[in-house]
Design a protein around this nucleic acid. Sequence first.
DNA 1: AGCGGGACCTGTGGGC
DNA 2: TGCCCACAGGTCCCGC
Length: 277
Amino acid sequence: MPELPEVETIARGLSPQIKGRRITSLSVLRPRSLQAGAELLPALAGARILGARRRAKLLLLDVLTAKGPLLLVFHLKMTGGFLVHPPGSQALKHTRLIIDMGADGRLFFDDARSFGWCRVMRPDELTAWPFWAALGPEPLECGQKDLAAHLARRFAGKKRNIKACLLDQQILAGIGNIYADESLFRASIAPTRQAGSLSGPESKALAMALQAILRQAIDECGSSIRDYRDANGNAGAFQNSFAVYGRKGQSCRVCASPLESGRVAGRGTVWCPSCQR
DNA sequence: AGCGGGACCTGTGGGC
DNA sequence: TGCCCACAGGTCCCGC
């Protein structure tokens, strides 16, 4: 599922394939996949794509139209993905949007489960968008000490469990189910712990674990469970490094205890009852 | 405040 | 083989 490392990998792989290209048109094959900005579609004709970038789990395409800058903001949710196809290529079964780049090909946004979406926005609309404005900091864009301090501050007094807090995009941006479970294992913290009960050293350990795991996952081009592919159609490799996610019923790689599984914060969760306290 | 549950989606895989 | 159902999960929204 595209979380921070997967979206980052997609943005890095996509950017060189589309940078500097001109959009001839954007076709919407599934109306609900365009969540906002239909009135801006005509302005996209002739616009130049400046590049692809990531914020939280969002993938953003910066484009420059004759009337000024616009953004194509995508949320890939569970099964969204991008691939550039040759000019004239026909839509696939799950293609939801096509950005036609003339002789430079066609960028498909495919999404089997149709949870993902695109919003076409002016820069001022983006900054005013409540979801965008409320996003917490990027975990890899602050120093380890700053991240630990931020987490400690945001966890203080919270009765919610720590896993729910890690999944809360307003506390920290980009973490989903996989990296929440993996980070908590690395930091030896049980997902069911009340966030407010974490000690200073535990917040530090969690900050360290989050950064180490996200960096390693980006280095390995993300995790591919089933659907995820990068912008070149390749699978990631971090799934081979999972300590707990998807290992329900198996034994801990560190202490060999049987892993515990259940629903925490409404999500399937796996942890080691011996290593994680 | 925080939690559970439903809605949105569809492909997959286990059980029978 | 085929049917049924649980499950995957990010976000929003509603009700308690």
